[in-house]
């Protein structure tokens, strides 16, 4: 399976980011993973990428193929990030897969995810859940 170009982890829980990054590293899905502590930091980063306000030679800047997004976060939560993200250039967005990652199984949250046509995963993230997600969204890219 081909590696993903990059993954963004957006979660205010540092340990959760650490564990998810460890899991992804061990699965060897990608070489580039960046962590963000809230929606605003992540959106500012993405906006700069979309507007090409970055140094392409820097390894710290990359356009992700997958974003794992927590819902409850300070400053800007997952859904606020989502609505801003949907205002970005459609061409820029089309090869980015977004997945909500949350502890809650509320129909409120799952329905909202379904309305935006994005994946919804419950914590903890496992190899199995990650593999299912890849199978569902990156099948055609692999191979």
């Amino acid at each position: 399976m081909r590696k993903l170009k990059g993954i963004m982890l957006i979660d205010d829980d540092d340990t959760n980011n650490f564990l998810n990054q460890r899991l992804l590293n061990r699965m060897e899905i990608t070489d580039k993973i960046r962590e963000f502590r809230n929606g605003k930091q992540a959106f500012d980063y993405l906006y700069n990428i979309s507007a090409e306000h970055y140094d392409p030679s820097s390894p710290d800047y990359f356009k992700p193929s997958l974003i794992l997004l927590d819902i409850n976060m300070p400053v800007m939560n997952g859904f606020e990030f989502l609505s801003l993200f949907e205002k970005l250039n459609a061409g820029f967005r089309k090869d980015i897969v977004l997945a909500l990652l949350s502890t809650s199984e509320h129909s409120q949250d799952t329905e909202r995810a379904a309305a935006s046509n994005i994946a919804y995963l419950t914590k903890p993230l496992t190899t199995q859940k990650m593999q299912d997600l890849l199978d569902a969204y990156f099948q055609e890219e692999g191979e």
Binding site: D13, T15, N16, L19, R22, N72, T103, S104, K123, P124
Partner: peptide
């Protein structure tokens, strides 16, 4: 209970790690 879920899940993950 909702906010405690995250840390508990972290402990699960850390124990596994």
């Amino acid at each position: 209970s909702r906010d405690l879920k995250g840390p508990v899940l972290n402990v699960t993950g850390l124990v596994e790690a």
